[in-house]
Write a protein that binds this DNA or RNA. Sequence first.
DNA 1: ACGGCAACAACTGTATACTGATTTGCGGAG
DNA 2: CTCCGCAAATCAGTATACAGTTGTTGCCGT
Lengths: 236, 236
Amino acid sequence: MSDERPFRGSGGSLRAQIYEDIRDRIHRGAFGASDRLVDVEIAGNLGVSRMPVREALLQLTHEGYLVGTTRGFMLPTLTPTDVANIFEVRRCLEPRAAAHAARTLDAAGMERLAEALKDAEEAVETADAELLFQANVRFRRSWLEAVDNDRLASAIARFADHVQVVRLGTLTHQPTQAIVLAGMRKLYDAFTSRDSMAAFDHMTTFIQHAEERFVTLTRALETASDEGRRSQGQSQ
Amino acid sequence: MSDERPFRGSGGSLRAQIYEDIRDRIHRGAFGASDRLVDVEIAGNLGVSRMPVREALLQLTHEGYLVGTTRGFMLPTLTPTDVANIFEVRRCLEPRAAAHAARTLDAAGMERLAEALKDAEEAVETADAELLFQANVRFRRSWLEAVDNDRLASAIARFADHVQVVRLGTLTHQPTQAIVLAGMRKLYDAFTSRDSMAAFDHMTTFIQHAEERFVTLTRALETASDEGRRSQGQSQ
DNA sequence: ACGGCAACAACTGTATACTGATTTGCGGAG
DNA sequence: CTCCGCAAATCAGTATACAGTTGTTGCCGT
């Protein structure tokens, strides 16, 4: 509060620190769909001027994490088409990247994968959606770090993040949890046995399943809320 | 010079106009590898303040068109690894996008493709590398516009742009020109006959050839310049 | 009560000013 | 002649100030 220093981050520039801070908060679901992110407000909270905050928000907007309006920045509302588009790109990229990772993963990376998988197993046992969500993120991050094609890796990270925002919702359903865990296990086996082709194939089905679950659950959610909205006419 | 108006662009914000302006200039090869883009200087030329220019430069940097240094922004020097990485991503994305386009291209799009192809044929006849370059860009832009997956299309455009900067150099070689033209013809046939699978396959080979030509010619260029650099030790 | 209009407020966008870091270039010592 | 170090310029980063635009609120007329 009365912190003299403007920010506690450790990175290089304020812009970079603020960018990561806001992006992480978006990941954690700290913002609702109706929240407006206003640079001057965030700047006040952080004790800095508008400029670094504004630049961070602009970057997030260009990367698709936010949408800019004439009145603040907001979370994008992903239409089913948007989600389908994102998954199409992921289907193109991630299998090949996984094949890379199967060849280049080192012992440390394998260890992190194992930990993430263990957490995922525990999460499914205790039906802890939040933990499974985190484990899933760490699992992907772990093998993605081993991909030696930086551009491929960062593109994947970006597109995965976009749908990750809504992913948490699908992981609360028990059958989905089992499917995700099974997919992670198969991927893990492919990675540890350095089987590029298996990694490619299992990643393909993993993403297919992720999309299927999303579509199914979203459709269910939509029809449910449609009834409640029936009397209000057009949705916003 | 004594223009009252700060800028002649037509887009929304100054930032967006300047962004496009600089990006186009990068495409046209207006900047050399040793040129430094300095915000205050560009701002002076355009009659605006640093801020919109700075934001445009930052965006270009985040998108990989530039690299930021402590002393101005510069063009990235693509290593062979960089180029290989970019082409790997393109190999993943463009065939599928081409398959899309084969189904969604309308008459107007077909017309633009035909024009671009005609220019390319003329360019090869007259050995006009610049014209072939332009035709190639327009050809891709035309079918890319028909891809209904915006994220896929913009990702492709971005990665294609990155290597396009060095592409011009490869198109001066006659055999490469013939290969490119042949690839465009096959793609055009696939598009006009709405054959998604053929579009997919021909795009795959088209990109493979593009990468091959690049690697070959770059290697030739490198060994040539290596001899001249022999006495200087490490390259910069 | 409801619809339109006007004044207001809340933002983004742009401009200007300042600061700190880093490179560059010059000068002196070895 | 070379190498070290210091001074000065340059430029990114950040802060503050101003302008322009749009959504919002409240009032007035119907």
